[in-house]
Nucleic acid binder design. Structure first.
Lengths: 118, 118
DNA sequence: TCAGTAACTTTAAAAATGAAAGTTTGTTAA
DNA sequence: TTAACAAACTTTCATTTTTAAAGTTACTGA
């Protein structure tokens, strides 16, 4: 029988209690941190994200926004009634992802050629 | 006609020249940084990685090791002739991924419940 | 010679991704 | 008053990736 501490159903983690693994359970894919990057840059609407240089597929974008909202990394708010318009904003939890992105940008600038310097 | 600067074939990047996007092109999935974490912890053999708490599928592990070797994040060396045995080690480029993992661990400890503190 | 181990490779099913078209709600120009 | 346009999605379906499981190769030690 599985102990509670080892059971991902009862806890938050899917693979192991390792903090790296837990972060990757939520953010470990090609698109999620692109959306966070855009939010950190001040972009806030669905079409802002959709029109980014990476051309995120719209169904992926919608799914990621829902996932991040559920994880309380961002909030969705209607800023206009008619026509209905929504904006997305980072929570403190979401803003605190900045050091991860900073470290990635730094590493990329140091080691990957043809990368835009930041 | 596509300009050279915008052509991912000629450059290293697949989606955009953004350093975040470039990093995610290489590392943006659920398993790659788990392998890097293990390497940073001093694990070095295929079975070391395979026996980690996350139970990485063996074909995924083999593919990731090849990809990281190709990207010069790690090296593979035969440390014994017979039976043939191999070990993997981070290059300076690989070791410099540590700040990214540190930032992830920090964020996880700050915001994700049931995570092991580091 | 037989079981066991490291380091993979192969296979087939399941899940995720990606490209494209479609939907809903409203605005604005003709 | 109708047609075109836009934001913010949803749906569909083909392709790609992931996963679990079994298989392979090279060798050791009993």
């Amino acid at each position: 029988m599985k102990s509670t501490a080892d059971n991902p159903e009862k806890n938050q983690w899917k693979r192991s209690p390792c903090p790296i693994a837990c972060t990757l359970d939520l953010l470990g894919d090609k698109w999620t941190l692109i959306v966070v990057r855009d939010l950190l840059m001040g972009r806030s609407t669905y079409s802002d994200f959709q029109n980014g240089p990476e051309n995120i597929p719209t169904n992926i974008l919608a799914e990621r926004l829902k996932r991040l909202e559920h994880a309380e990394v961002l909030t969705r708010e209607q800023y206009q009634q008619r026509p209905p318009r929504y904006s997305y904003h980072l929570t403190p939890k979401g803003k605190d992802l900045a050091p991860i992105l900073k470290a990635m940008a730094r590493w990329s600038n140091d080691y990957l050629p043809y990368t835009v310097k930041v």
